[in-house]
Structure formats: C-alpha cells, structure tokens
Write a protein that binds this DNA or RNA. Structure first.
Length: 249
DNA sequence: AGCCTTTGACCAGCG
DNA sequence: TCGCTGGTCAAAGGC
C-alpha cells in the first residue's frame, strides 16, 4: 500500500479527500455503465492510473474499446469531464495496492510479464468463499495499466474496511455497485470481466466483456457453485484480450 | 496473533 | 517433446 500523492497548485483537499473524490467519481462513472454483475471497477486503482495520466496529458481520453454492449462512452465522458473540471491535472496518484474497491484483497502472486517490462500482480478476494480474482498490471513507472477482474463476488462488500491505505472507512453506501452486483438484472450474464486499460498516452481502452463463465472455472476454487447466478458454461471471454484467456478455462 | 506482501518454485497450456 | 509464458502455491517475513 504505497500511495504517492503529488499535489501541486491549489489543492486544498487532503489526500483522502482527493482520493475519495476521485473514487466517488469513478464509482459514479462505473455505475453509469449499467448493471455490471461482477464488474466492480477498482476505482481507486483505475482512477489513480487515470489521474496519473492527467499529469502527462490532460485527460487524453480518446479511443475507447467497447467489447460489451454497454454505453461505455459514458464512463469516458464522466471521467473526462469530471476530472478535468476538478483540476486533476495536477494530481498524481500511484497506488501500489489497487484494491480499494471496497472489498478486501490478498495478493497471492506477482509475475513479470511481457518480457519483464510490466509486473503483473494477482489478487484474490479475501472473503472465504469468494472466487473473485483480479490481475493488475503496472507499467514501468508503477502506473496501473490494466486491471482485469475475474469472477463475481458472492458476498456483500465488507461493511467497513480497515484503512490501511487511507484511513477512511469504506462502507457499502460508498460503493453502490455492490448492490448492483448482487441484484444485477442481466439474467444472461453469468460472469463479466472488466478491464481498465490505460496506456502511457492515457486511457486507450476500457473494455468490458460479458462472459458467461460458469461457476468459476477456476479449478482450484471450491467456491460456491450454489451461487448459480453465474452457473453456466465456461469460457466465452469474448472481448478480453488473448492474454486473459486462461482465466476462463 | 492474524493478515498481508514478497518471491521463488511449481504447474499447465500453447506453439 | 521442449521451451516459453502465464497463473498459482506456499514459505518466510513484515506490519
């Protein structure tokens, strides 16, 4: 949990306030996307990456990959308009632990992929029977370039998190998408995988692929198959880049 | 004491 | 079959 915060100019908000604000915006943006079952956008990480980008380029949010049938452009718009208007061009956040989405995560591995250029971290939800995992890929500068969620939380967000990285307690009200995840209205969607992709030039893509991933293909996880909200077939990671395919086998 | 991160090793899939 | 790559395990140590 390393948070580098560089505040320049007239930033009167505290670290946590800034983070909270970014987070809130990201939540809102994510929520706008629609009822994404397990696509819990890791806003703190995503936004940290986003805000980092504002240092280099003021919201160079351009091309949008859209693999889902969701109006992702709304995310784009929100992030763009909100954050620019908030003056985030002078805010850089580098969150080493990109887990501040309300859930508790345990890092269980890290690998240098793509020729060792980009370290990729692997996180599991610490909830006992929760199969959700996520991969977080960093750039050479420590920025989060890609976050891929896998699985679906079968529990509610912990009401309060101990605040290792910020001190602010997070509760469910702060993350409405959790409720959405629990009550999603997409019957056909068993599983989704969200990916936030940020390049050095800014956001190059934010793609979500709705996957029907049967009860968590993850071989090892003996988790709840009873939550067969997502029971179904496996695979179908359409939209996720090839590198992710093994998540769905 | 419990939970977390780190990190090297191991395993599996693919070309 | 072999090497590469990605994902996971598990021990060790830290907080």
């Amino acid at each position: 949990m390393l948070i580098h915060l560089f505040l320049q100019g007239n930033f009167e908000m505290s670290h946590q306030q800034a983070l909270a604000q970014v987070t809130a915006q990201a939540v809102h943006s994510q929520y706008t996307v629609g009822s994404q079952a397990d696509y819990s956008l890791p806003f703190s990480s995503a936004t940290s990456a986003l805000t980092s980008q504002f240092i280099k380029s003021s919201a160079n949010v351009t091309s949008m990959k859209e693999t889902a049938t969701l109006p992702l452009h709304t995310v784009n718009d929100n992030l763009k308009s909100n954050e620019v208007s908030q003056g985030f061009q002078t805010l850089a956040l580098t969150v080493d632990k990109p887990a501040d989405d309300g859930y508790n995560w345990r890092k269980y591995g890290q690998k240098a992929v793509k020729g060792g250029e980009y370290p990729r971290s692997y996180y599991k939800c610490t909830q006992a029977s929760c199969p959700v995992k996520k991969k977080v890929e960093h750039s050479a500068y420590g920025q989060i370039t890609q976050i891929i969620y896998r699985g679906q939380h079968n529990h509610q967000r912990p009401p309060k998190r101990r605040s290792k990285d910020g001190g602010n307690l997070l509760n469910e009200d702060d993350f409405p998408e959790n409720r959405d995840a629990l009550t999603r209205s997409e019957p056909g969607s068993q599983d989704h995988s969200g990916k936030v992709e940020v390049s050095n030039d800014g956001i190059t893509g934010l793609s979500m692929s709705k996957r029907r991933d049967g009860g968590d293909q993850s071989s090892g996880s003996s988790d709840r198959e009873e939550d067969n909200d997502e029971a179904g077939d496996d695979n179908g990671d359409a939209g996720i880049v090839n590198a992710n395919k093994r998540w769905f086998m």
